[in-house]
Design a protein around this nucleic acid. Structure first.
Lengths: 193, 193
DNA sequence: ACCTGAACACCGTTCAAGT
DNA sequence: ACCTGAACACCGTTCAAGT
């Protein structure tokens, strides 16, 4: 029993530390030896929980997607309107950036795409699709603009891409307020309702 | 004399091969040993031309910025109008993506920001600022919308960030047509005039 | 001036060995 | 069940040594 608890705790610690480093330094910047030091074990031990770096990355990303999906779905379940939903959406990426200049994993790992194992690439796509599906639902709440189904799909993809770009721009300047300014411009220009 | 030519040629070869790999695999994905194989020398020899990886990266990026600046400035010198300029601008990133699913170095290296040596970080900012300065000039050509100076600055930053995001989104799906669709949506939504 | 092999401390991964 | 040291082929970098 206590062994099971310890195992879960160690696995949790690995995944949490890995997620933070991935958001900070990317997939290539994640080192098993550094990770092991943070968790308090040897690097070879990480392979007991995650046989390869790819499996660790995929597991971290899968949970990351699930957590954000739960939060976002909760907003719709609460019956919040479109403006509030989109404000809370852009705030998610804003908070990430303000938390140590970190990136959303969807954007960070999209850049590293060619260097990623297939299972991680697949989870990057899952994350993006989850975001886009949610944005589609939110855009359907609109009572003002009224776009067709295809236009809403395209708009959702465009908003997701634009938010990633804004985060990237803010990060490279080490200045989270740049993200805020860009997102504000997306709104005034009409990209985000 | 022939030695000078050979030196220049080798340095050129290194920079060209490095640029292609950087656009493909990022800074972390650039290996001196792999690069040396492509050029036909040993990895230790690269250090003769570029003492560190950071200096190589900064040199590649500096030229990359200068080349794009020359092309973009040429468009304005020719007296092309705003629509044509912006179309040619988005086509630059489209072409990059269609050329082996490669990324613009400004976006690729922005993601890797935390892992980059200071001289490379500085060149990433130079590249972004060059793009934004040019976009400001193009937006000032507008005869229809008329935005204030501050609004134009903001719009230029937003367009640059959004284009990077669109490229990122297309790349992670290995599908350049996604870039086209997103950029089209930026136009219909009003972000890009 | 230009190039190299060898060494150094890093990396993910494997595996036999420990408890 | 969980952890480890040692080995392997990688990495950027350094440097003495070659031409």
């Amino acid at each position: 029993m206590s062994k099971t608890v310890n195992k879960i705790d160690t696995k949790e610690k690995i995944m949490n530390a890995a997620r933070l480093t991935l958001q900070d330094c990317g997939y290539a910047g994640l080192s098993f030896r550094e990770l092991a030091k943070e968790v308090g074990i040897k690097s070879a031990s990480i392979h007991y929980y995650f046989p390869t770096k790819g499996e660790l990355g995929a597991a971290v990303l899968q949970r990351y997607t699930a957590n954000l999906a739960e939060y976002l779905d909760g907003l719709l379940t609460k019956g919040l309107d479109q403006d509030v939903c989109l404000k809370k959406y852009t705030d998610v990426f804003r908070t990430t950036l303000r938390n140590g200049n970190r990136m959303c994993l969807g954007g960070m790992l999209a850049a590293e795409h060619k260097e990623l194992p297939a299972e991680v690439q697949a989870e990057v796509i899952n994350f993006a699709e989850m975001n886009i599906r949610w944005l589609v639902r939110v855009l359907f709440l609109d009572k003002k603009v009224r776009l067709g189904v295809e236009a809403i799909q395209s708009r959702a993809r465009a908003i997701y891409a634009a938010i990633l770009g804004a985060q990237l721009a803010g990060r490279s300047r080490d200045d989270a307020s740049i993200y805020d300014e860009i997102v504000k411009t997306y709104r005034t220009a009409g990209l985000i309702p």
